Simulated scan of single mutants.
Amino acid sequence: MKLDLSGKRAIVTGSSAGIGLAAATALAKCGADVVINGRKAETVEKAVAAIRHVAPSVDVQGFVGDLSKAEAAEELFATHPSCDVLVNNLGIYAWKDFFESTDDEWEEFVSVNVTSGIRISRHYMPEMISKAWGRVIFISSESGLNIPADMIFYGTTKTAQLALARGLAKRAAGTGVTVNSVLPGPTLSDGVVSMIEGSIAGTDQTVQQAADAFVKANRPSSIIQRTASVEEVANMIAYVASPLSSATTGAALRVEGGIVDSIG
């Protein structure tokens, strides 16, 4: 089985690090030209260089901008008017008690995690439909199904992404354009590594050991009993982006190690 995306252009939002960077790298290795996005020029340039190193035959470009803002999105559309594979990965997370959360924090979470994907999908999907081929992938989370009590605003926005993706899949019915969600669980991304490194300073525990201990203590239903790697999540994204996934649409595809205790 070969995942061939030669001749396709992929845009991955929030892709200068973590799952986004791993997804962009996987797509580039499959032959897709990719657009990397982040808010800082330095991190975007570093990510572009890293992908060019492992996939020298594809075109890799960077776009610096906060795509939760309409102005930045309009600049993206003007710079990169065409897209075959759109990965809506841009997102933020935080731990905070619901009763201490503010309207501004809720609005920020909705703007970054939900509205950005609405705006960008609304722009690129019509052309995909006109070409009778396209892939739109929302990076949701198992927290969209298992709403964490200490991350309610995060979980709520991830549930919204699932509804959005399902609705868009129906809107694109019969066109050759598929829309799916990928649901990672606890994943050893750059942000998680940085957080764990701070918590284990002065101990002899490794980042992997601490991360896996967190999963066992806080996500006891996990079947793999460990964190996933960003590459494991990216493998699913690459498959869903490929022509081989043509019969998969409107789906919520879990890469969360079995945390969600459901056979459905």
Rank of each mutant, 00 (worst) to 15 (best):
A149S: 15
D150Y: 13
V207I: 12
T206W: 09
A47H: 05
V207H: 02
D59Y: 11
M151K: 15
S141W: 09
M151D: 06
A78T: 12
L145Q: 15
I120F: 04
V110Q: 09
I51M: 08
E75I: 09
A163D: 11
L21M: 10
V114A: 03
A10C: 12
A17I: 10
K158S: 03
V255P: 04
V112Q: 04
I237A: 06
G7R: 06
I237W: 00
L5V: 11
T227H: 07
T13A: 08
A213G: 07
I223L: 11
E74S: 13
V85D: 06
V230I: 13
D4S: 10
F63H: 12
A55P: 00
G65M: 12
G174F: 08
A160H: 05
G134S: 07
A228S: 14
D150V: 14
S246M: 10
S68R: 05
G202A: 04
K96S: 11
V44W: 01
D33T: 08
A211E: 01
V240E: 06
A172R: 00
N89D: 08
R226W: 01
R254A: 08
L3I: 09
I223E: 03
A49E: 15
T249P: 04
V193R: 14
N37C: 11
P148M: 12
S141D: 08
G176T: 00
S140Y: 06
A72M: 11
A78D: 14
M125N: 01
I259S: 05
F63Q: 11
S111I: 03
M151T: 09
N146P: 06
S189A: 15
I19A: 07
F153D: 15
N88S: 05
M125G: 00
E105M: 13
I139P: 01
V230C: 13
I196M: 07
A252I: 04
G144K: 03
G38R: 02
P220T: 10
D104K: 15
A49L: 13
A211W: 00
A17Q: 15
G250R: 01
I223V: 15
S143C: 14
I259K: 03
P56F: 06
A132M: 13
A55V: 05
G65C: 12
G174N: 08
G14D: 10
P126K: 02
A241L: 05
S111T: 12
S242V: 01
E197D: 12
G91I: 05
F138P: 00
